[in-house]
Design a protein around this nucleic acid. Structure first.
Lengths: 104, 104
DNA sequence: TCACCTTTTAACTTATTAGTTATATATCTA
DNA sequence: TAGATATATAACTAATAAGTTAAAAGGTGA
């Protein structure tokens, strides 16, 4: 599966988008993430591994804990590219800017 | 299901993202969209209805045809809001702009 | 009305996903 | 080393998704 495919699949889950929102405020251990959900710890562990395999988050063992954090560029990059390719208004804006720059 | 939930679910399919890309270049009938895929026409019809129910595209009957087109603002809007909420770099950029504007 | 064309809906199958509990692995500390 | 804590993996179940073909619905025009 291609990288954008994995990203969009990862974003399809509300739980995973919530995890991203938490991690966007700073790294957390798997356990702390799991506490915030009304769901078993293994379930959250699986969600984390899906996010990681989409390269949206990183993972680092710290002693007996495992810390996760946002992979800063991949999400914004993938979505920005997609918006630019697929949204007519954003293409229009881009064209406007091009026009402005051409007349600079 | 909330509107952003529907949007992200709709985007989870490669086929549906391809349909959006086609429609972003201009409206097409259901049949013309279906021709571009190696898949039955009813399958495409279902994909179109999922995109429509996420408010990503509009639908209009024209005689015996049904024309579909991009719903210009919903996709960009939803994704931009999400990026802004969830991507640290975009928050950083936003904060920079705020700082710039404050000093204007 | 009838034949034809376009699209949607229905019924079904198969594959995938999201959750569960139980178990294994890794690390810390007494 | 043993026991406790943190996390991941395995095995399983139930719900959902994506495709198929067949049939229905909407619309055209002789």
């Amino acid at each position: 599966m291609s990288s954008p495919d994995k990203v969009f699949e990862a974003l399809a889950s509300t739980t995973r988008r919530r995890i991203l929102a938490y991690l966007s405020e700073g790294p957390l251990t798997a356990g702390v993430v799991a506490e915030r959900f009304d769901m078993s710890q293994p379930a959250i562990s699986k969600h984390l591994s899906i996010l990681e395999s989409a390269d949206l988050i990183w993972k680092k063992r710290e002693g007996q804990f495992v810390k996760y954090g946002m992979q800063a560029d991949n999400l914004g990059g993938t979505l920005a590219k997609f918006i630019q390719e697929v949204c007519p208004p954003s293409r229009a804006l881009k064209a406007e800017r091009r026009a402005e720059n051409d007349s600079d």
